[in-house]
């Protein structure tokens, strides 16, 4: 159901550094009918962004930019095949994000490393990949983010 809001209510009071609209030709698993999402980058925070549907802004989630995207060749090897499938490229100019789940009671953040969201910056097209292998080992070896 469309509610006509431009931005999710949760964004009120949060300073946004950059806002881009990305086409997701297949939607996202669970939200296949939604093809366009905004990525709102939070001011002074290079790590977390908000991803929300342009048509249904309440369909919103926190995403985390892959902390090793520029440095981990191993990670790119793992996702390159999938990236090539969609973008016909070797991974250059493609941002990788992970969906983060909030566990409010325990105030924990849990990243889903099995399904990275890849966004081609030039074409502003994105896909959520579903990998057979969980990337968490690679990520944890290379960053401070758990």
């Amino acid at each position: 159901m469309k509610n006509g809001n431009k931005h999710p209510q949760m964004l009120e009071g949060i300073e946004i550094r950059n806002l881009v609209t990305v086409e997701f030709p297949y939607g996202l698993p669970g939200f296949e009918w939604l093809k366009r999402f905004n990525i709102a980058e939070v001011k002074d925070n290079p790590l977390f962004s908000l991803l929300y549907s342009t048509d249904e802004p309440d369909i919103s989630m926190i995403i985390m930019k892959c902390p090793v995207a520029e440095t981990s060749e191993e990670l790119y090897k793992l996702v390159r095949k999938e990236i090539k499938r969609y973008f016909g490229a070797n991974g250059n100019g493609v941002d990788i994000y992970f969906v983060v789940r909030l566990e409010k009671g325990e105030k924990k953040l849990i990243a889903n490393y099995s399904a990275p969201i890849v966004v081609c910056r030039d074409r502003m097209v994105g896909y959520q990949l579903i990998l057979e292998r969980d990337l968490s080992e690679l990520i944890c070896e290379n960053s401070n983010v758990r």
Partner: peptide, 15 residues
Amino acid sequence: LYQKILEENRASLIS
């Protein structure tokens, strides 16, 4: 696998 990711995405919605 698809169902697992679908459920994870739904659980990740900001309430």
